[in-house]
Each structure stands twice: as C-alpha cells, then as structure tokens.
Amino acid sequence: MGGFLTNAFLMTVLSGSMVLYFGSHTSAISTLNWKNYTAGQEKAPLWASFVSWMVVMMPVITISAGYPIQSASLANNLLNGISVSSWHAIIYPFGLPNDVVEHQPLSTESGHSSSLGNPTWPTTRAKVVARLASVLPPLIPCLFVKDASKIIRVGGLVGFLISLLIPCILQLASMRVFGRLWPHAPNPSYTPYSGFYSRYPAIAVVLCLSCVAFAYSTYDTVRRLAQG
C-alpha cells in the first residue's frame, strides 16, 4: 500500500511537471520530450545536448541491460513453477527418451548426472525452451508494430499485473498455505518480515485500487488504439 501511494504520487508529480513544461507539444513517450531540448536557447549548448542525449537513450540502455536478466529470471521461474511431468510433455511430445526418467531431482548443474545415472533437471532442452518462451513473446509483436507508444501502452497494462495484482494474490495464497500447514498459529499473516500492509484490509484495498486502475487503463488503451 505504501509503495502504491508513493508510486502514484511520484508519477503524478513527474507527469504533471512535464505537461506544464512542454505544453501542447508533450510527447506520448516521456523521454522523447527531451529530444529537442535547448535549455530555452535558440541553439542548444553542449551540456543541453548531452542532457538530451542521456535522457533519450536512457530507456534503450536500461532495457538492453535488464531484458536478458529478467528473461533469465522468468525462465527459471517457469522451470521451477511448472511440474517436471508437464515440462516433459512439452519438450518430449513423442515420449521420453530412454535416458530421461519421469521424476528427476532439481539441480542447477546442467550436464552432470544424478546418483541414478540420469541427467539432472532441468535439462539443456528444457532450459532452451523456457528461455525462448521468455524472450520471444515480447519481441515478435515489435516486428510488426512500429509505434513505440503503442508498445509501451500495452506493456504498461502488464505492469499492473506484475507489480500490483500478482503480489497481492501471492500474499493471499501464502497466507492460506501457512494457515493450512500451521492451523493453530494465532495469526497466519504475521512473519518476521510482515507489517501493517501485509494484513487482509491492506491487501483488499490494494487489490481494489489495482483492479480499478487496470480496468480504466485497459479501456483507455483500447480506445486510443482504435483511434489510431
């Protein structure tokens, strides 16, 4: 809840300041507003050109650096979040090879053998499939959509799910699992890392606000895309 309010406040201040400064020439992509920045002079001084270049290139630098790391993390989550039998059905649709068993121990040392003489999990094939599944879906639409503002709008909708909705759902799920494993615990929502915002009322408020914001953003995105 605290992060939600802080993020909303900062985004409101930044977006409002940008609109007040650039006026009717405000670009849909905030960093492009600095493309022709001249510091109020007819010809941009050297330092203003440097500031303009840094602001415009910052998303390219940060995304290029973070995309491989985030894709690798997502691939690891897919490997550990989906059961081994389900992965076997995906990567071996015509049946398991003789050197692969149905249930294998988890290991991060790919290429080594387990005590039973079978390849450890995840196998190289599973890693390749998981990483391609993490990397390719965002890249393929970019080949056909040239307007970066449309990509950012659609990507922003996913941000609601990743940063707001999914954490709340995970919190509720973990509290249920805790209550099932330790039914006599006085407060299943309390852990050494819990605070006021880890309790049910705060989670409910964040979920409600997130759903409202997600619904409005989805409507606004669809409306703007339909208008071209």
Rank of each mutant, 00 (worst) to 15 (best):
L79S: 07
L172E: 13
E109S: 12
V212W: 11
M58Y: 11
P68M: 03
K150H: 05
G23P: 00
E109G: 01
G155E: 02
T31H: 11
A204P: 02
F9P: 00
R224I: 03
V154G: 08
G155I: 05
G195Y: 08
V84Y: 01
V205E: 06
G111R: 09
I152M: 13
Y219H: 04
A48G: 08
A213D: 09
A173L: 08
T12K: 05
A44P: 10
T38R: 11
V60F: 10
V55Y: 09
S115I: 11
M18H: 04
P188A: 10
H112L: 14
G16T: 14
D99C: 05
A130C: 05
I63D: 03
S113R: 08
P105T: 05
T191S: 15
F94K: 03
Y200L: 15
G117I: 09
L172A: 15
K146S: 13
A72V: 14
A39I: 05
V101P: 00
A48R: 12
L20M: 09
F9V: 15
P167R: 02
Q41P: 01
N187V: 11
R125L: 15
G179K: 08
V222G: 00
N36V: 03
S217A: 12
S64T: 15
I82R: 02
V60A: 09
T221Q: 02
T221V: 11
D99L: 01
I140R: 04
L20T: 10
R223G: 00
Y37A: 07
S198Q: 04
Y219S: 01
V60T: 14
F9A: 15
S113L: 15
F144P: 03
S217Q: 07
I162D: 07
V84G: 05
P201Q: 05
S174E: 13
A185F: 07
M1R: 04
T62L: 15
M58P: 00
S113G: 00
A65C: 12
T124W: 07
S71F: 07
C208D: 03
P119T: 08
D147C: 07
G111D: 13
P59A: 05
S189W: 13
V100C: 00
E42K: 07
W87R: 10
L172W: 13
L170A: 14
K150E: 11
F144L: 06
C211A: 15
L143S: 01
L20Q: 12
T38M: 13
A130I: 04
N33T: 11
S163W: 06
S24R: 13
I140P: 03
W34H: 14
N76W: 13
D99P: 01
W47T: 13
L32N: 12
